[in-house]
């Protein structure tokens, strides 16, 4: 079935295993370094939630939803597309008007954020679609808490 995203291939998303995450934050720093040229957890497309007292660490990632509400809510033609190789729902920076509809629509956008504002645009995980080795967060995770999960159809 072709989803609202208009893409029927397999979809890849970064999946996190809480039990393995040690909260170090390498994923956030590598992600923002690659995407922004700065180490900045606030602009990382993956966010580690840390509760030191409970000993709980959890990386919040974009699920690249089958019926991605961020995409269906985007009012601007061509501002959100599906990447042909990874199936990632991605924001096209040049087209994005920064209205924020995607961010408000995302049901998983907690206080730390999956779809984040950066200046007058919004940014989200694009599965490092232009990086041949795949998402950098998965590459750098020292404990194998992050994996690329593949879902059959988008």
């Amino acid at each position: 079935m072709v989803s609202k995203a208009g893409y029927a291939g397999p979809v890849r998303a970064v999946a996190a295993e809480e039990e393995l995450c040690n909260g170090c934050g390498l994923c956030e720093l590598a992600c923002s370094l690659l995407a922004e040229g700065a180490c900045n957890p606030s602009l990382s497309r993956i966010t580690v939630s840390r509760d030191f007292f409970a000993g709980r660490f959890y990386p919040e990632t974009c699920r690249q939803c089958p019926d991605a509400e961020c995409m269906s809510s985007c009012p601007v033609e061509g501002a959100m597309v599906v990447d042909a190789a990874t199936g990632a729902r991605r924001i096209v920076e040049e087209v994005c008007t920064g209205c924020g509809a995607c961010s408000s629509a995302c049901p998983f956008n907690g206080d730390l954020g999956v779809v984040k504002r950066r200046g007058d645009k919004f940014v989200k995980c694009d599965m490092c679609f232009s990086r041949s080795e795949g998402p950098i967060c998965v590459s750098v995770c020292p404990t194998n808490a992050l994996k690329v999960a593949v879902r059959g159809a988008g």
Binding site: N22, C24, L26, A30, S139, V140, P142, N144
Partner: peptide, 14 residues
Amino acid sequence: AKGLEGAPTPICTH
């Protein structure tokens, strides 16, 4: 564990 980009060393950035 494996560390940065597959190097077999985990070092916490922090």
